[in-house]
């Protein structure tokens, strides 16, 4: 399964992270449409993205941006011949555009993952699922993160 993983390796994530630490000394570091698009292009290697088959579920209004439920499901029979290889999640306005990559395969039974993410601000999230046939499917959603009143 690892062999079929997408190009965003842990090494690449770390390398990207190191670069961003340097940039972080400048105030208000955040990803943007541009950096998110670049991260997505690096992940898809320029493959054509189609909207559909992927459902990205995030509450429309969140209690606290420190922990936001995020689940992704992809329509797929998850058989050896036809399955989701991975699910990658990107964001628009956190300091770096990568959120997570989940590597799946036919043994997952269903293409369905849930986690919790940090959202620094109201922003757009994108989930991309590369399939075993090489096609790439996408879903995106906008999340509203409200101003927290009782900070510490």
């Amino acid at each position: 399964m690892r062999r079929h993983g997408p190009p965003l390796s842990r090494r690449a994530l770390l390398a990207g992270g190191t670069g961003l630490v340097a940039v972080a000394l400048v105030p208000a570091v955040r990803a943007s449409d541009e950096t998110m698009d670049a991260a997505i292009r690096a992940f898809t290697q320029g493959g054509a993205l189609r909207d559909g088959r992927v459902v990205l579920d995030v509450p429309p209004l969140v209690d606290n941006g420190n922990s936001v439920n995020l689940s992704v499901t992809v329509e797929s029979p998850m058989t050896a011949a036809d399955h989701v290889r991975s699910i990658a999640v990107f964001n628009q306005k956190n300091p770096q555009p990568q959120v997570a990559v989940f590597h799946l395969g036919p043994r997952a039974g269903r293409a369905e993952v849930t986690t919790r993410v940090r959202l620094a601000d109201s922003q757009r999230l994108v989930a991309i699922a590369p399939m075993s046939d090489g096609s790439l499917w996408r879903a995106s959603t906008d999340v509203l993160v409200t101003l927290a009143a009782c900070l510490e």
């Binding site: 399964m1 690892r2 993983g5 965003l8 390796s9 842990r10 994530l13 992270g17 420190n66 922990s67 936001v68 964001n91 956190n94 300091p95 770096q96 990568q98 959120v99 997570a100 990559v101 989940f102 590597h103 799946l104 395969g105 043994r107 997952a108 993952v113 986690t115 919790r116 993410v117 940090r118 959202l119």
Partner: peptide, 11 residues
């Protein structure tokens, strides 16, 4: 059977 790569955006 499953592997996740996590970035600092994970809570």
């Amino acid at each position: 059977v499953f592997r996740a790569e996590l970035a600092p955006a994970i809570a």
